[in-house]
Design a binder for these strands. Structure first.
Lengths: 214, 214
DNA sequence: CTAACATACGGACTACGCTCCGAAATGAGC
DNA sequence: GCTCATTTCGGAGCGTAGTCCGTATGTTAG
C-alpha cells in the first residue's frame, strides 16, 4: 500500500467533508448534553462552542441560531415519537382511539423537558428564520397532520363526514389543541395525570361536536 | 391665595404621583408611536426611553421588559375589540353566528400589525414573567373564553350539549384555533380574504363535529 | 512539490435587553 | 427653613446572541 492508497478508501468524501461531519457530530452531542442537562435558558452558545471545541463563529455556521441548535436536538426525539405514533395509530379501533394512539407518544416530552419543549413549540409556531432544523420540524408536523387525514378517511365506511368539513383543517385544529394542552402542562396549569383524558375529550369534541339540535 | 394653597388643590395626589403618571403617559405614547410605526423588532428600548425622555433604568421600572411594553400598547386595542365582540355576540341568531360575532373584531389586528400581533400572541402563550400587562392580557382572554361559555349556554334550549362535553374546554379549543389561524395569516400561509370563512368552518366543526356514525 | 485558489474557521467585536447602584427629588418631622 | 428618611431616577455597565473579517486549512493545477 502506498501512502496515497490507504487514505483514499476513506477519503472518497475528502478530508474537508470529514472534518465537517466530525464538527457537526461534536456540536450535536455538546448541544444535546447541555440542553437536556441544564435546560435551554441556562445554556449559552459559548458553552456549546467550548464543549464542542469550536469557535462561536464556527458554531453559527452549523446552526443559524441558538433556537436552531435546540431544534436540531429535539427533532431527533420528535422523529422517533412520530414514527411510533403513526405505527400505533393504524391499529386504533375507533377514530378517537386511533388519533389518541397517534398523539400519545408526543405527551412525554413536556413532562421530561418542559422548558426545552416550550421553546421548541414556540419556535415552530413563531420562528421567522427559515433554518434547516425548523424546516425539518415543520415537515414532521405536516407528517402528523397528514396521518390524521389518513385515519379519518380510514373510517369513512363506518362514519360519514359532515358536509362542508375540510379534513385537513380538522387536522390543524387537532394540532392547535395539542399544542395548547401541552403548554398547559408545561406551565403547570394542568395536571399531567389527567392530560390523556383531557386530550381524549378534546378529540371527541372535535370529531363529534359540542352541540346537537335538541 | 397663599403660595401653599393654590398648589394644594391639584396636589391632593402629590407631586410624586403626578410625575409618575406623567412619565407613564409619555412612555405609553412613545411606545405606541414607535411600535405601530416601525414594528416590534425595529424598535430598541433605548429609542423608547429617548422619545419618552427618560433613562433606560426608568423605562424598566414602568414595564419590566420590552415585551411588556408592547403588551401595554396592544392591551388597549384588545380591550376595545373585546368589548365590541361581546356586545355583538349577544345578538347572534345561531351558535355559529354568535361566536363569529364575538371573534370578528379580533381579526383585523394581524392584518394591520402582523409583527406586533405575533409577538403579542407569543408572549401571551409563552411568556414566563408575571408582569402586570401580561396579566391584563390573560384576563382579556379569559373574558372571551367566558363569553363563549355564555353563548353556548344561551342556546341550550334549542340545542343539547353532548354528554361529557366540558364547555370551558371547548372555549379553550376555540381559542387555540383562533390563535393558530391568526398566525397563519400573519405568516402569509393563509389568504386574509378567506380568514372569516375558514374560521367559521372551524367553529362549525367545533360545534357539530367532523364525523357522524353512518 | 509548489503555487494559486477556495473554503472553513474562530475570536474579537457589536448590538441590545436589562440591571445595579450612586445621585437626585420628594415628603415628613421639627 | 433645615435635616433626615424614603422613593424615584438614570446611565454606566453586564451578559449573551450573533457577525465580521483576517487567518488557517484543505484542494487543485501545473
Amino acid at each position: 500500500m502506498t501512502p496515497t492508497q490507504a487514505p483514499r478508501v476513506l477519503a472518497t468524501v475528502g478530508r474537508r467533508a470529514r472534518n465537517k461531519a466530525d464538527k457537526q457530530q461534536r456540536i450535536f452531542e455538546a448541544a444535546s448534553e447541555l440542553f437536556t442537562g441544564l435546560g435551554y435558558s441556562a445554556v449559552t452558545t459559548q458553552m456549546v462552542a467550548d464543549r464542542a471545541d469550536v469557535g462561536t463563529g464556527t458554531l453559527f455556521r452549523y446552526a443559524s441560531s441558538k433556537a436552531e441548535l435546540l431544534m436540531m436536538v429535539m427533532n431527533e426525539q420528535m422523529r422517533l415519537d412520530t414514527r411510533e405514533g403513526i405505527a400505533a395509530a393504524s391499529s386504533g379501533a375507533s377514530p378517537t382511539e386511533a388519533i389518541m394512539a397517534l398523539l400519545a407518544p408526543q405527551i412525554h416530552l413536556p413532562l421530561e423537558f418542559p422548558e426545552n419543549t416550550a421553546v421548541y413549540q414556540r419556535e415552530i409556531l413563531f420562528g421567522t428564520e427559515q433554518g434547516q432544523y425548523r424546516t425539518e420540524a415543520l415537515a414532521r408536523i405536516s407528517e402528523l397532520e397528514d396521518a390524521i387525514g389518513d385515519i379519518l378517511s380510514r373510517f369513512t365506511r363506518t362514519h360519514r363526514v359532515r358536509a362542508g368539513v375540510d379534513l385537513r383543517g380538522a387536522g390543524r385544529t387537532t394540532f392547535a389543541t395539542l399544542h395548547m394542552e401541552l403548554l398547559r402542562v408545561t406551565f403547570g396549569r394542568e395536571d399531567p395525570a389527567t392530560l390523556t383524558a383531557t386530550l381524549r375529550s378534546h378529540v371527541d369534541v372535535l370529531l363529534y361536536g359540542v352541540l346537537a339540535p335538541a
